[in-house]
Design a binder for these strands. Structure first.
Lengths: 213, 213
DNA sequence: GGGATTTTGTGAACAGTGTTCAAAAATGCA
DNA sequence: TGCATTTTTGAACACTGTTCACAAAATCCC
């Protein structure tokens, strides 16, 4: 009897994700996981080094799912023969919005997780999964007639992503879901429109001059 | 002897901020505060309802400081006779970057704080302090020759802010402070440049059409 | 002043945490 | 079967936030 070790690990992760999604970060308790998975507390620590380890693993799954959602949105548009940059960027942003809405607890938990300790060495497995997304965006930008060099396009892709992310997570505070829900759409549309128009106009984006102050 | 009640509260907040700044959210412990403030644990709960209450109060101070930094940056530029929109926006973004760098632990703690529970009623005191910032940005935008109606300008201000915020907080993960430090500057410069160029071009930003697939 | 009353401060106690680790149960092997 | 090895267990430990009966201090009122 008893399931495979790896199988049990998967079950633990599924349970953990539900817990995170329902109650946020401090709803992820070792005893709750153990009880719901039908194992003992000690076994949880046998499968994962930490509760942080569990959370990290859940986060990886989330990032994978997000990447898949982005890729799927692009594949869908390609299949429908849509190559318009604006539409593709809006589709990507829309995919992200839907993803966040589909993970109302576990996604904020991922964000909170990364902000717990001030400056901890980041697992670059994170970055790798993000680069996947950046490359999708960069690919879309390459489809437009912007004539950007590779480096600028890379930066533009990251800028776009960060901006959409900032918009979706509503600055840093303030939920008030009512009017925010369509305000997000308005902001995204403005951002994409402005971005495309701004990139269309020629001119180099050399990083010169007064950055600030 | 013994200090005023309000005075003790201020001391507690100062201690709490240092703790948050040094060790992140889970470094804010009731017993540590009590010990460092020279009072008992119970007294902490006499001054504040919760540890969350303490954290909230610290966050308010942070938001006030951020607002002041933004206003000061604008006042500085005004005094120097600088009205250029690009420079003003870059100065605002720069002020934010410096603010985040000056609060390496307590600012992430504020962000994490707001993401702990999925959907909790937000204290609108937060929003009020943010609106202050949005109005500064909207004011700057009003100085340019974009001919935007009030509503669009309001949205544009929020979009800009959210985007800068997203850029500064580096997407959602990934620190790796080395190359990120100048990448942030590059992204901000690209964003502001693109934003200004995109807004300069005429055309209405009506929120019509396919928001996303 | 001095007794009564109210306010304020205290820290032991309680209910939960994450995490460990000697022991027990299960499994592998000859 | 008997022994060795691995895996699972859950009581125990150290540490959380939070409470609340009690004590100390302050305040009031005559």
């Amino acid at each position: 009897m008893a399931l495979d070790k790896e199988e049990t690990g998967e079950r633990v992760l599924a349970i953990a994700e539900v817990l995170l999604n329902e109650g946020g970060m401090d709803n992820l308790k070792a005893r709750t996981i153990a009880e719901q998975a039908g194992i003992s507390v000690g076994s949880v620590y046998n499968l994962f080094s930490d509760l942080d380890g569990v959370h990290r693993a859940v986060n990886m799954r989330l990032l994978d799912r997000l990447g898949a959602a982005g890729a799927a949105a692009m594949a869908d548009l390609s299949q429908r023969g849509i190559t318009d940059v604006r539409q593709r960027l809006l589709a990507l942003a829309g995919a992200y919005v839907r993803f966040v809405e589909a993970h109302p607890g576990s996604w904020p938990a991922l964000l909170a997780f990364n902000r717990r300790r001030p400056t901890l060495v980041e697992p670059d497995a994170y970055e790798a999964r993000l680069d996947q997304l950046f490359e999708i965006i960069a690919g879309v930008l390459a489809g437009g007639d912007f004539d950007l060099d590779d480096d600028t396009r890379r930066i533009a892709a990251r800028t776009l992503w960060s901006s959409v992310h900032g918009i979706v997570t509503s600055g840093y505070a303030g939920r008030s879901v009512r009017r925010q829900v369509d305000e997000i759409d308005q902001q995204i549309e403005l951002l994409v429109a402005v971005f495309i128009r701004g990139l269309e106009r020629g001119g180099t984006f050399a990083h010169a001059g007064t950055t600030a102050s």
